[in-house]
Design a protein around this nucleic acid. Structure first.
Lengths: 337, 337
DNA sequence: TTGAAAGCGCTACCAA
DNA sequence: TTGGTAGCGCTTTCAA
């Protein structure tokens, strides 16, 4: 059986209060007693169980994400985990598949259990579960996701700006016939990348009517097909493509290879995220990078603040932090020849 | 403030014991009282807090893995999460980077907090922390990792068999000059893949002295360099390569493209894992698949059994489950021409 | 069918 | 400097 504070107290011939005090470094205890108690603690390999101590938080947070097995999300989760650990927080993962039933199940599970706060990085739906969660007194921070009209701390990456910069980069390289392949217009952040891209083109004097915006799921073959369709007309095909997410870049590259179109010489390609996939592309992918580490750090900072202030019942002023994405030039884009 | 069982009892004009009974469906309570109490529970949106109930487990497990941001591990974690959720367990992730300090930190954190069990899928070291963990009364299951001489439930994939089957596949396609690129011989599972590969060649009458086994970290450029070196001698280069992990396949493919060697026509390539990366390769990667879902299911099954039996103080008979990997033929291997 | 009360391991307050 | 004890929210046993 795991030793309890009582075991320690008995063995050290003191009361449990005294043991508690040395554990928490409160009150004043003689050095001698302290030492004795620590010795016993070592001997018994005693580990205080935070669980039953009621007052003490468990220092655990839940992270709702669409799918931990998506490489980009795994990287974001890792960033959250790292920042959390520095402040003593553990991370429970909850892959929702953007399914509102799972979402609600997980939320209820987390609340019931013990978590001190929740990070919501889940996709598209403005589900009832999320609303209720926000309105409850559970500390919540949204990541890469907007919930209009509700007071929640939020960390987002400026998707519009990202799309804009992708456009500007391509235009600066001389591209005029460009296209975009996007994951799903139902996801607000994707929508913004599209809008930003269009804006960037327009500002540069490129008529967006001539700019195809195509859609594909993350399924490789689907993306490849879509892209083959786009590229097969040799005369009119675009000289550059922007994909809303790096996974799609692989579909484009496969299509290009099938058609013997060289990247970047005959076709420039730019992505979004800067996950490990960008480096796995051949050629390595020029991309709009999301500041993954900063996202993790910021979201944890806000959440921990909330958790702390919650206890103090402080007035709640919500914050919204927008981080800028930035261009990383690798080998998949080149000046038009 | 979150409502407690007392709030419910007061509002329903019953005692807390009665409420507790209807919550847990124990004892015998009149339908009428039951209904009344459930109504109040709904009204108050009461959620029992498992934390302080002492007897009830928190139904949370910790997973020690090298790095959640590695795509294959993220997929394994997802499988664990899914199987766990079906039994009501949440998953806390602990990325150790195979660093024994982090490992011990996490273990101590997990024990102190609340977890009912721990899955250890961490890399190479036979660290003190792990030993102590196993010897403690915390339920533990090892995944893809051996700890000799210690009684622990274990789930492994037969790496030797996997290497063997990779060799056989290549030989059956007519390859005689083959090579292998492996991640790191210090990891036992990689070592076994190498051994199995050699065995498969030897059985097929291929002299392993002529079979280069090269090493590379997961760094893409390093792998590419290693591979360029291997392939640059046009006369003597292998016609097939086995990589110990799919990440390395990208390095090989990049090297091959650099040298204008066509895959699979001039060079066959076979990987190990069957993560999403296999489908991202171009051509799609023939690979030795690890049964990811079954790994997750089995490891959870064993762990939950241990957790249950632990309570019953049943005699502990440890199990070791070996799952078979299996070949998936895609487009990166072809008969020698 | 219901309720009173002990106890889970710990912290924090007050008294000694 | 130390210890006694109430109380955290809940389950469980025993009695009513």
């Amino acid at each position: 059986m795991k030793p309890t504070i009582y075991d320690v107290a008995k063995k050290a011939n003191v009361s449990i209060s005294t043991v508690s005090k040395v554990l928490n470094n409160t009150g004043s205890i003689s050095e001698k007693t302290k030492k004795k108690i620590w010795d016993v603690i070592d001997e018994l390999q005693y580990q205080p169980s935070l669980v039953l101590s009621a007052k003490k938080a468990l220092k655990t947070i839940g992270v709702l994400i669409p799918d931990i097995s998506n490489p980009f999300m795994a990287e974001v989760t890792r960033a959250i985990e790292d920042s959390g650990r520095k402040k003593g927080f553990s991370v429970i993962i909850c892959s929702t598949d953007n399914d509102s039933t799972k979402e609600e199940e997980y939320i209820s599970m987390l609340k019931q259990k013990y978590v001190d706060g929740i990070i919501v990085a889940t996709g598209l739906k403005n589900s009832r579960g999320i609303r209720e969660l926000i309105e409850s007194d559970m500390p919540v921070v949204m990541l890469s996701r907007d919930v209009p009209y509700l007071p929640v701390d939020t960390v987002v990456v400026d998707d519009f700006q990202g799309g804009y910069e992708a456009a500007v980069h391509l235009v600066q390289l001389g591209h005029r016939k460009v296209a975009m392949i996007a994951e799903n217009i139902n996801i607000p952040s994707i929508k913004k990348r599209i809008d930003g891209f269009k804006e960037g083109l327009q500002i540069s004097g490129i008529p967006i009517e001539d700019t195809p915006i195509l859609y594909s799921s993350l399924n490789l073959n689907e993306c490849k097909e879509v892209c083959l369709d786009l590229l097969k007309d040799k005369e009119n095909r675009p000289t550059a493509i922007f994909v809303s997410t790096e996974m799609l870049a692989f579909g484009v590259l496969q299509a290009a290879r099938t058609l013997k179109i060289q990247v970047p010489n005959q076709l420039s390609l730019i992505g979004f995220d800067n996950s490990i996939l960008a480096k796995l592309c051949d050629p390595q992918l020029t991309t709009i990078a999301q500041p993954i580490e900063e996202m993790g750090a910021k979201v944890i900072e806000l959440l921990v603040n909330e958790i702390t202030n919650n206890q103090e019942r402080a007035k709640k002023v919500t914050q919204r932090v927008t981080l800028s994405p930035f261009l990383i030039v690798r080998d998949s884009t080149s000046p038009i020849s």
